[in-house]
């Protein structure tokens, strides 16, 4: 099922996505990410995402862009193999901060 839920995690807001993130609702994902970044840093949990298209990836890129402009953290958490394959295709796995789990989220940002 396509779904988006949020929960606070330390000083970040964790946005959990599930299902297939595609053009039919990636606009909603984008808005949720951008809105949250206006107030705080954001982690996006992608462990339950079975497919993501370019518009979904674009939503994440816009998130990263917004976070940088606002000096917030923007972290991808527990990226599923399906999402990782798409990120790697465009070498975006080297652009985003990826952490394997929520424990990694709490750790101070490397670099």
């Amino acid at each position: 099922m396509n779904d988006l839920t949020t929960e606070p995690h330390g000083n970040l807001l964790l946005i959990r996505l599930s299902g297939e993130v595609d053009l039919s609702w990636s606009g909603r994902v984008r808005d949720a990410i951008i809105e949250a970044l206006e107030r705080q840093s954001v982690g996006v949990d992608l462990s339950a995402v079975s497919y993501i298209d370019s518009s979904g990836i674009a939503a994440l890129v816009e998130g990263l862009q917004t976070a940088r402009d606002g000096e917030r953290r923007f972290v991808l958490v527990a990226t599923s193999p399906a999402v990782l394959a798409v990120l790697e295709l465009a070498r975006l796995d080297r652009v985003f901060t990826l952490v394997p789990d929520l424990a990694g989220l709490a750790a101070p940002e490397a670099g």
Binding site: G27, S55, I57, V61, E62, L89, A90, R91, L92
Partner: peptide, 20 residues
């Protein structure tokens, strides 16, 4: 085909494919 996309989305999606 996708009039609903913003300029920023179009830019990111098309340049991403150039990266690919």
């Amino acid at each position: 085909h996708h009039a609903e996309l913003s300029e920023n989305q179009i830019r990111i999606m098309s340049r991403m494919k150039l990266e690919v």
